[in-house]
């Protein structure tokens, strides 16, 4: 029924969450669980790959906000990569580029982790 899924991959020490489908109020819990899992595994360097993310609602954006503070306090970060234009627009309207590093590719995002916090 849900048309949303999270795929877990790893690039070195960085956890990559590839989102597919629509992230809305109904599917937000699934994304929440994914990040919770990273947290319990002690993985605080997370790249969210939005290449196949077709839609995001305010509830989906809320998930980023719910965890970012804690992850950053652990020395990690969530970086967002490869968003489609339409989805990027939603992030942009809310001012997310001020709060998050949003880059074009997953590789770029992992490189940013390597160069260290800004």
């Amino acid at each position: 029924m849900s048309n949303f899924s999270v795929a877990f991959t790893r690039q070195g020490s960085i956890r990559v969450l590839s989102l597919t489908g629509e992230l809305d109020a109904h599917t937000a819990t699934e994304f929440e669980k994914a990040i919770e899992r990273c947290k319990t595994n002690g993985e605080f360097s997370i790249v969210v790959d939005g290449e196949h993310l077709a839609y995001i609602s305010s509830a989906g954006l809320g998930v980023f906000m719910a965890f970012i503070e804690e992850i950053r306090s652990e020395g990690g970060d969530i970086k967002i990569a490869a968003l489609q234009d339409r989805v990027y627009n939603v992030f942009d309207l809310l001012g997310f580029p001020i709060l998050f590093e949003i880059v074009g590719t997953v590789e770029e995002a992992t490189r940013l982790f390597a160069t260290g916090p800004q």
Binding site: S58, L61, G62, M65, A66
Partner: peptide
Amino acid sequence: LERSVYIT
């Protein structure tokens, strides 16, 4: 506000 909630 809850952390996941914001107001535009």
